[in-house]
Design a protein around this nucleic acid. Sequence first.
DNA 1: ATACATACCTTGAATGATTAGGTATAGTGG
DNA 2: CCACTATACCTAATCATTCAAGGTATGTAT
Lengths: 112, 112
Amino acid sequence: MGKTNPPFMTGVPELLVLRLLSQREMYGYELVKSVRVVTSEAISLGEGVIYPVLHGLEKAGALTAKRKPVNGRTRVYYEVTPLGRERLERLNSDWDRISAGVDSALGEAGRV
Amino acid sequence: MGKTNPPFMTGVPELLVLRLLSQREMYGYELVKSVRVVTSEAISLGEGVIYPVLHGLEKAGALTAKRKPVNGRTRVYYEVTPLGRERLERLNSDWDRISAGVDSALGEAGRV
DNA sequence: ATACATACCTTGAATGATTAGGTATAGTGG
DNA sequence: CCACTATACCTAATCATTCAAGGTATGTAT
């Protein structure tokens, strides 16, 4: 019986993916590189992270996929659904809460 | 042969514990409550997280433990070693880098 | 021809966190 | 006196997330 809750600090890959897709539709391989760029190289998510996240979000109804052939290769573009936007907002405020918590703990009589 | 790197977003419990102990020595049960307080209730680490972290850090030479009997009960006080301070600084800058990365990704043309 | 970049995907293992227990003493209310 | 709560330590089982490392296939440049 134990459904364990997800670890308190996870869902960041999901958050980043949803955030990027909320600006414009993108495909997996593109996301892999975009994450590196928009986080100023601070975070690098491999394909082994991105693709499962994408599939999970699609299954959850947060994304819709459409295949487009481009230059002979096939790309799978993902778009955020309204449900996905709700999820994004939730993850976003979770992140804000948590990171503010950590920062406040670190800030106590500390750094400049 | 795969030594997998630690997940990019972990070590936050360790960071918080080291940070608190760098201010003054504390015991496990005290840390459980302190974490809640200093993070403004945003983060709550149970005993199942705190104690293993404490033992791990001690084994790694980042903390030293000394037992003190107080009011009949025994408390185990932990103190940060120089090695622990190095570790704290490393974790601290890791956190800064990562959280800045996420924030910058979220900030792009977004919120107020 | 060979190699590299694009583009998709999955599987296995490592790791960290959560839940849920278990032990024991001290103090409080009925 | 007894039950209950708070203090204080600890561990083991489970689970989800992530990472590394593969595998397939097409296009492009050398």
